[in-house]
Structure formats: C-alpha cells, structure tokens
Amino acid sequence: MTVIHPNLEAVDPKMSAEGVSVYYGDKQAIKDVSIAIPAKYVTAFIGPSGCGKSTFLRALNRMNDTIPSARVEGQIELDGEDIYSNKMDVVQLRARVGMVFQKPNPFPKSIYDNIAYGPRIHGIFEQKGDLDGIVESSLRRAGLWDEVKDRLNDPGTALSGGQQQRLCIARAIAVDPEVILMDEPCSALDPIATAKIEELIAELSSRYAIVIVTHSMQQAARVSDRTAFFHLGEIVEYGRTSDIFTNPIEQRTKDYITGRYG
C-alpha cells in the first residue's frame, strides 16, 4: 500500500493511475499502483534498479504496447479519459504524452528534420514558414538554438551527447505535448550537460506536466516538486519532494534515500 504524505496538497491531476498492474508474460512488474500526476509540476520516480520505474513510465503513454509480452491492467487517465480504452487513439496519445529516453536517440536525419519529424507526421503546421518557426522555438526552449542555428542541416547524430539529449527534448516539445516523460535523461551525460538539462526541466515545468525517472537522489531533490518511491513494483511512498527527503515515513524509503541499499 502506498503511503501518501499528509501535507500533500490535492491538485487536479493531469494524469492519474488507479490500480495499475503490468505483466511481462507471467511476471508481474508493477503491482496495483495508484498515483495522481499534477499538471505544471515535476514528479520524480526514484527507486532501486529493476523496481519497475521504466515499466510504469512506459505504461503512461502506452509504449508497453510495443513489447509483445507486456500486458497492462487497471485504469490510467489523461484529463479524465481512459488511455487504454478503445476510443483512445494511441498515436494521438503519444503526441500528447511525449517521451525522452535514457540514451539520446536522435534520428539519423538533419537537426532540422529531427525537430520537424513530429510536426510533419501530425500535420500541425500550415506552411513551411510555420514549420521553421516551430523548429526554432523548440530549439530555443530546449536551449540549443544558439549552438546549432548555423548548422541545422548537419546530422543530429553529429552533436555531442548532451546536445543530442537536448535535441531529443526539443523534438518531444515540438509537437506541444501536455505531459513529458523522461526516463533517466541525464544518466549518459556529464555534470555540465546534466545541469543544462535540469535547468531546462525547471523551465519546461511551467508549461507541461513532467515525470522524470532518476537514480540520482540529488537530482530528484533539485528538480522535482513531488517524489514517488518505487520498490519491487509498488509505490511505497509518495509526497512532496522536500517531505520525502527530509522526513520519510516508511523505513524502506529511509534506507533508500540514505543509501543503505539500492
């Protein structure tokens, strides 16, 4: 059972999960998880390796559909709509709930085409000029514009790791999603690139609901407003980040954040 911190203020959830379980074949990776993810906040998922953080994150935009053995039970809603219902168009859902992966994965295309990819497939621009505008504003919001504005036609793979990751974030925000899911977005980056991404997250949270999975306690403390501690497929404790880190209720949470195991 999840322990919810008493002074967690109730806000309208952007996304909410009710009794969600995820199975890979016979193996249950997520056990009856319920959580509300508020808009315009950064929510961090922390927990030891293999506890199901990525699995749960992927359930939020139905990326688990791409794994044949994966099966999701329970209810996940986006703005009150059940995302696993037949009426929900997966393609639309993923445009509204974007995702940034652990390893930067720019497409083997030019920087420009990487950003333009989403707007093109969703047809969310009128003319070529609009597309240029979307590319520029996405790159600006990702803090990458000044570094790449002279070489938009270079391949995205030619950028440094940190730049590639910001390119992937720019690519995700180019379709103007409502929620951005980030799975350990800084784990392949050095501290300077990490600091840039963290700054970016702070900025983006004024517009989007952001969920970030991280193994770095400091990072969770720095960037997030709320933190959920996962353990063995369950959310053990959920509350304001400051509460979780300063006075955790559950023993397992205490042990984890003080580095006793994990």
Binding site: M99, N105, P106, F107, I121, R171, A172
Partner: peptide
C-alpha cells in the same frame, strides 16, 4: 537499426508504417 530509434519514433506518436518509412528505411 537500434531499437531506440524505433522507440523514439513511436513515442513521437508515429505509426509503425510511418516509423518504417521515415526512420527505419532511411537509417
């Protein structure tokens, strides 16, 4: 072609055939 490329495209809301046409085959 790395699975990450495919995931990246699908996570952008591309369909499988769009992913094949725009990402996998060019790559």
């Amino acid at each position: 072609v790395p699975q990450a490329m495919r995931d990246g495209s699908l996570a952008m809301g591309a369909t499988t055939s769009e992913t094949i046409k725009q990402v996998l085959v060019p790559a």
